[in-house]
C-alpha cells in the first residue's frame, strides 16, 4: 500500500477526474466532444500511472494516447463529414448498461473478497532503465514482434485508406 498523503490525495483527485471524463465520453451527444473528453481521460490515466510510480508508462501514455490516438480519432471524425455526428446508442443500450453494471459488481466483489499478497517493496526509484533492460534481454522476441506489428498496422492503414486510381474501370 501507499502511505504518502500527497500521492493518495492526488490519486483520488485524478481518479475522480478520469472517471468523470469517461462518463462524459459516454454521455455527451457530440462525437467531437466525446473525443476531447476521451483525451482528458487519457491524461487523467497518465496521472494515475505516475501515482503508481510508473514514470515511463505515464510518459508513453501521454505521447501515444493523449497525443497520437486522440489526434487519429479526431481525424477519423473529421474525415467522415457526412456521417452522423450524433453520439447515439443502438437498441443494445439497456443490455449494455446491465452487463457493464453486473461486471463492475462482480469485479468489486472479487477484489474486496480476495486476500491480496501485498509487498512492502515501496515505490520504484526509476523504471526507464530496468524497462529497457527487460525489453532487450528477456522480452526481446515480443519486443521485435511488437515492432513488426506496428509496421504491419501502418502499412495496413495506408492500404485501406488509399485512393485507387483505377477506380473508374472497376
Amino acid at each position: 500500500m501507499i502511505e504518502d498523503n500527497g500521492i493518495v490525495i492526488a490519486f483520488w483527485i485524478l481518479s475522480a477526474t478520469t472517471i468523470a471524463c469517461a462518463l462524459m465520453t459516454a454521455a455527451v451527444r457530440e462525437l467531437v466532444q466525446a473525443v476531447l473528453f476521451l483525451a482528458l481521460t487519457f491524461v487523467g490515466a497518465a496521472g494515475i500511472y505516475i501515482c503508481l510510480s510508473a514514470d515511463f508508462v505515464a510518459v508513453a501514455q501521454i505521447l501515444i494516447y493523449a497525443g497520437a490516438v486522440s489526434v487519429l480519432m479526431t481525424f477519423a471524425v473529421m474525415l467522415t463529414p457526412a456521417a452522423d455526428r450524433h453520439n447515439s446508442e443502438t437498441i443494445f443500450q439497456a443490455p449494455a448498461l446491465v452487463l457493464s453494471g453486473l461486471l463492475l459488481a462482480v469485479i468489486v466483489f472479487v477484489v474486496l473478497d480476495t486476500d491480496w499478497a501485498i509487498s512492502d517493496a515501496g515505490a520504484f526509484q526509476t523504471t526507464a532503465a530496468s524497462l529497457g533492460e527487460a525489453f532487450l534481454k528477456p522480452y526481446v522476441v515480443p519486443f521485435e514482434v511488437a515492432s513488426v506489428l506496428l509496421m504491419v498496422a501502418m502499412i495496413g492503414a495506408i492500404v485501406l485508406t488509399r485512393e485507387l486510381e483505377e477506380d473508374d474501370d472497376a
Binding site: 472517471i19 462518463l23 490515466a45 452522423d84 453520439n87 446508442e89 461486471l103 469485479i107 468489486v108
Partner: peptide
C-alpha cells in the same frame, strides 16, 4: 486501485457495446 480500474473498464464496456458510431 483495482476498483478504479474496474469502474473505468465498466464504462468502456458500456460505451463499446452501446454506441452506434464505429468511432464511438
Amino acid at each position: 486501485v483495482l476498483i478504479v480500474g474496474a469502474a473505468l473498464f465498466a464504462i468502456g464496456l458500456y460505451v463499446a457495446l452501446s454506441k452506434r458510431n464505429a468511432i464511438g
